[in-house]
């Protein structure tokens, strides 16, 4: 376990020293600026718009971070051959992979926390604060964990460019699985419907983690939703990571 932590903290340190924090600053300033300018642009709806924007930025920024850093996590080490000295130590390859994963998770946690703090501060000042937003952000964070797992999966066998494309595609598809249900209703042949159902269950359903609309509009959210979302993450994410470990295990570092 301490070996995983050694890799994780090292990964975290690398991300931090990568000056990614400067982007956070940009985010903070942009959000603040937009919130001030907003009243000039719109008639009503300011509260909703600021909340939508804040949530969307935290989500989007997190996804981009998790993909762009995640896809290089393993492949960069292999390409640069920094992995040679690590694998020669008494560490299992899966420990290395999990360490990389949790290092990035830690980075995402810090990023998200900082952005959330700033966002909530702005809301408090304007009088729009709502603790349910924190729940929405928590679920967004769970979504990030799943996206990161996919990024690292692709990283274990593919180049950063391809992995980025795959991960982005998967993110988009993950938010479209609801359309499979619609498609299923319109199809006639039972095998086609079965295929739709199968795809719907197999492809990652990222909309499970999306309660932005409900929270912003003050609509109710089922109490057990968060719990099931967490279970989904643990199951699906665990499977993805296990696959990544398997792939890394078999790989030859030529």
């Amino acid at each position: 376990m301490s070996r995983i932590w050694a890799i994780a903290s090292n990964t975290f340190r690398e991300a931090i020293r990568d000056r990614i924090l400067y982007l956070l600053l940009v985010f903070a300033l942009l959000l603040m600026g937009f919130a001030q300018v907003l009243s000039l642009l719109t008639v009503g709806g300011e509260e909703k718009i600021i909340k939508d924007l804040g949530l969307a930025s935290i989500s989007l920024f997190g996804v981009l971070t998790s993909i762009f850093i995640g896809v290089a996590l393993v492949s960069k080490e292999i390409e640069r051959r920094t992995i040679y000295t690590i694998v020669s130590k008494p560490i299992h390859r899966y420990e290395f992979l999990l360490g990389k994963y949790f290092g990035l998770v830690l980075t995402l946690l810090v990023n998200t926390a900082v952005m959330t703090l700033w966002f909530y501060l702005i809301l408090l000042l304007k009088g729009f604060a709502d603790p349910r937003l924190l729940l929405a952000i928590a679920l967004i964070f769970l979504e990030l964990l799943l996206v990161t797992a996919f990024a690292i999966l692709f990283s274990s066998f593919s180049t950063p460019i391809l992995s980025t494309l795959f991960s982005l595609a998967l993110y988009l598809v993950g938010h479209l699985t609801w359309s499979l249900t619609l498609l299923q209703d319109r199809l006639k042949s039972p095998s086609a419907r079965a295929l739709c159902r199968f795809l719907y269950l197999v492809l990652p359903n990222l909309e499970i983690f999306n309660i932005k609309g409900e929270v912003v509009h003050g609509a109710p959210v089922p109490a057990t939703l968060s719990l099931w979302a967490l279970v989904y993450l643990l199951g699906y994410g665990g499977a993805v990571l296990a696959l990544a470990c398997l792939i890394l295990q078999q790989r030859d570092f030529t």
Binding site: L41, T42, V43, G45, K48, I49, D52, L53, L55, A56, S59, L60, Y171, L172, H175, L176, S179, L206, E207, N210, K212, G213, V216
Partner: peptide
């Protein structure tokens, strides 16, 4: 909605702001 990927609320906001202008 299919191309908003979970960000429909924000896109609606942006279209609304545009419509005001």
């Amino acid at each position: 909605k299919a191309v908003t990927f979970g960000y429909e609320g924000l896109v609606a906001d942006l279209v609304y702001i545009w419509s005001i202008q």
